[in-house]
Design a protein around this nucleic acid. Structure first.
Length: 576
RNA sequence: GCGCCGAUAGUGUAGUGGUUAUCACUAGGCGUUGCCAACGCCUAAACCCGGGUUCGAGUCCCGGUCGGCGCACCA
């Protein structure tokens, strides 16, 4: 048996050796926080991303968009990342440790340290003690460390750009276009799978904390009053999973298994939309091969939430090495982002919601006679026009103040109309439900959980037990012997499978057992062997990776059968 | 960034300042092989980078990079 602590080392060694994960640009020395996906890793990652697309794009109907990974400064000023994504840091002059300046100050009894300017904070820090060496800091400089990579756009360096720290902003800045695309109706969503960048101070833990990573994010725009009316909530109403609320965390209690219906009714999850995507996330993670017993959903503690979110849940996967890894974040971002971009850009980001019945509203309109007013007041006429609209006229006329000057407008220069008008609807700012997946962490979890060692004929066998859906190579094709035409037949079968869109790998090198083991190690779920019976009756053996059992099957049936096995609509056991 | 530890073929490793740098597995070639890492012969393949000490450095010293652990950081 393998011990738990070995898994990480074994799986990363295998991943490196067999071409899943490599240190980046190794010939120049690797760089922390960056990795290369090798041939099999890239294939597996693509398969995981495509399963994600099945769920969000095909099933949910949220189209994928693709925005640049660099955006101009205004985008991140609006999003709050320029100000909020930066930590105020200082360096201890004694032990040279980098410290969070506000943490040190608060530890030293300074109030409101997080809202102080750099200068004030530096002054306040002079008497505080270093958290590491406990020396009094004295004269220190406070500087902002922003986790965003900064760059410049164009040859002059005036125009600042940032590498995006999340893909989400792309969906927000495209809101008006998306709204039009979805024909002005809520709810709708857009998704993006792509790279994001965070200049982590000290990334570690291999592929768990990267400076460049792949996110798959969905932004679902909903009417704020409809968050408890997800149209297909019934799909997941009875779906159960362990939920760890912040109340339970504070009391150090275990997660409790609840159905989504119960979770919403008891107020454990804020609304139906959030609960729906919590459940969908669970189903998605299980379908890529995450074991349900290693999966839980944990609610963020109030002080852990991002600046924009109200309720927030993390899907966490239990790793032998790293404990519970935050892999998916599910947040109710409310209308924070759309409001912020509307304000910063001056573009309204609202949806017009038509009422079922128009509302009758009593309204007073003041209509000036501009023909006369214009001639009489010239360049002040426009200001007077605007002021009149807000005035309370009497029978005598109206008094308005323009540029500090009080002007009396006689009653015959305007008309007061009291009327009842139909209000047909209102402009609202949608709320955003955001499931945000860390694809690299999903890849790591899949690798770690797939790794297994068992015994075959008294020998240790290393096998990656990938779900056939994510296995990079889907089937291996072997001639039993490299002669008598068996290799030719195997080659033809390989090409036939390729034509059916199946990734088949031909191998005739070495003993048959060795070839099986090679494929076991990269997690290929099925293997086809061409033997002497093949020449008699056009059948081959089909071997299952996990059970190592074989069935005979007609060559004609191969593409269809393997396709079904990979997709999961047929099990190997049912073929026996 | 700090402290401690480490870095040698594709992988895992041995290596007292002094031969052609050890071994296993893997990989490639040829032969053999009738379904689970068989066998024979052959081949390829490494001292992280930069300084220093020394007649001589994989080995000792310093700095860097990467990795592990602890601290700090992780909207």
């Amino acid at each position: 048996m393998i011990t738990m602590s070995d898994v990480f080392e074994n799986v990363m060694e295998l991943a490196k050796r067999r071409g899943f994960i490599w240190p980046t640009s190794e010939c120049y020395g690797a760089v922390a926080g960056f990795i290369d996906y090798g041939p099999l890793g890239a294939m597996m990652k693509r398969r995981i991303e495509n399963i994600w697309r099945d769920f969000y794009v095909i099933r949910e109907g949220y189209y994928e968009i693709e925005c640049p990974t660099i955006a101009q400064e205004a985008v991140f000023i609006a999003s709050g990342h320029v100000a909020g994504f930066a930590d105020k840091m200082c360096q201890c002059p004694h032990c040279r440790e980098f410290l969070r300046a506000d943490h040190v100050a608060e530890g030293g009894g300074v109030k409101n340290a997080s809202t102080m300017g750099n200068q004030d904070l530096a002054t306040a820090l002079a008497t505080c003690k270093c958290l590491a060496c406990e020396e009094v800091l004295g004269n220190v400089e406070v500087f902002g460390f922003n986790l965003m990579f900064k760059t410049s756009i164009g040859p002059d360096t005036k125009r600042v750009g940032y590498l995006r720290p999340e893909t989400a902003q792309g969906m927000f800045v495209d809101f008006s276009r998306l709204l039009r695309f979805y024909r002005d109706k809520l709810p709708f969503g857009a998704v993006q799978i792509g790279k994001s960048y965070r200049n982590e101070i000290s990334p570690r833990q291999g592929m768990i904390r990267l400076r460049e990573f792949t996110q798959a994010e969905a932004e679902i725009f909903v009417h704020p009053d409809e968050k408890n009316r997800h149209p297909t909530f019934h799909r997941y109403a009875d779906y159960r999973m362990p939920l760890l609320t912040y109340g339970q965390q504070q009391k150090c209690e275990e997660a409790v298994s609840l159905s989504m219906r119960e979770a919403v009714d008891k107020g454990v999850i804020a609304n139906e939309y959030l609960a729906y995507y919590v459940a969908l996330t669970h189903e998605l993670l299980v379908s890529i091969g995450i074991k349900p017993e290693r999966l839980r959903f944990r609610q963020h503690l109030p002080d852990e939430r991002a600046h924009y979110a109200t309720d927030c849940w993390d899907a966490e996967i239990l790793s032998d090495r790293f404990g519970w890894i935050e892999t998916v974040g599910l947040a109710d971002r409310t209308n924070y982002d759309l409001n912020a971009h509307a304000k910063e850009s001056g573009t309204p980001m609202t949806v017009f919601i038509q009422y079922a019945e128009p509302k009758k509203v009593q309204r007073r309109r003041i209509i000036p006679n501009m023909g006369v007013l214009g001639k009489q007041y010239r360049n002040k006429a426009k200001a007077i026009f605007e002021a009149l609209g807000n005035s309370t006229p009497t029978a005598d006329g109206a008094d308005v103040v323009v540029d500090g000057e009080k002007i009396h407008i006689p009653a015959d220069l305007f008309e007061v109309r009291d009327e009842v008008v139909d209000i047909r609807g209102e402009d609202i700012v949608p709320h955003v439900i955001e499931p945000s997946y860390g694809i690299d962490r999903m890849c790591y979890a899949v690798l770690e959980q797939a790794y297994d060692e068992d015994e075959a004929d008294g020998e240790k066998r290393t096998v990656m037990r990938f779900s056939p859906k994510v296995a990079p190579v889907q089937v291996a094709v072997f001639p039993l012997m490299t002669r008598d035409g068996l290799d030719t037949i195997a080659d033809e079968i390989t090409r036939k499978l390729h034509k059916a869109g199946i990734l088949a790998e031909y191998d005739d090198s070495g003993a048959i057992g060795r070839r099986y083991r090679r494929q076991d190690e990269i997690g290929t779920p099925f293997a086809v062997t061409v033997d002497y019976d093949t020449k008699e009756n056009n059948t081959v053996t089909l071997r299952d990776r996990d059970s190592m059992k074989q069935v005979r099957i007609a060559i004609d049936k191969l593409p269809e059968t393997i396709g079904a096995l990979v997709e999961g609509s047929v099990t190997f056991a049912s073929l026996q």
